[in-house]
Amino acid sequence: MKLIGEKGVKRILMLTAFSAISALLLIALFILNEGLPFIFKYGVKDFLFSSDWNPHLGKYGIYPMIVASLWVTFGALVIGAPLGVAGAFFLTEYVPKSIMRIIKPTIELLAAIPSVVYGFIGVMVLAPLIRNNFGGPGLSLLAASIILGIMILPTVISISIDSIMAVPQSYREGSLALGATTWQTIHMVTVKASKSGIIASIILGMGRAIGETMAVIMVAGNSVNIPHSPLDSVRTLTANIALEMSYATGLHRQALFATGVVLFIGIIILNSIASVVLRKRAVKK
């Protein structure tokens, strides 16, 4: 009786494990199957490097969207990464553990705020601020970068904190015993020892920024346009799919799936880099 129960549990767990993997496989297959034929038919070069996106004239160049996605992500990192990493060091090195135990979950709550809410705040508060102080339409690359920069904070902070905490206490004690100040210990010892974890946190934050859709649609303005300044309105790859999917038929639909393929491959590359970096750290330990 016990034996059967054991086997049964194993099978059920196996089934659930397979359901996750097969979902991933099915999604990947579906996107590739719908998108790849279009890319080859339309021409890889034309699709990726032409800046003419005009579905009703049969023009499908996603170059402006690729550029926009890269700029928005870069902007989010410029804002989110220094804030996140510095915050993580402050919380681990300067703040007593008992207080940190309260603050860290609070920061992680940021990740629980739905992206529509971030977008809403962006539209209602941030866009008018930018419009009135810097000019332009307000809904812009800058607004999207700031919103995404805040959205990646919990990812960057909590993974950074974990990797900083993983640095053995004896390293810090050694440094302090040699007469170094806390700041000297941080930038000469702790940063070096936790570097790979911090880089991984930034890469994971980057993955979040590239993939975010709802908040970006709301604050980026969505014009198919290669930005010349941070105040220009842009459309990212994700926004392009979400905006036009409901109306698209035929080739247009396939072009959106092909956009998904480009995005999918980009994110796979990022995640693989992150996991390689993280694994390196594990091996070093």
Binding site: L139, S223, L243
Partner: peptide, 15 residues
């Protein structure tokens, strides 16, 4: 090219 694009009648009104 630099026209803002919104995805519904309602969001155009808000903008």
């Amino acid at each position: 090219k630099d026209a803002l694009i919104q995805d519904s009648n309602g969001t155009i009104r808000e903008t």
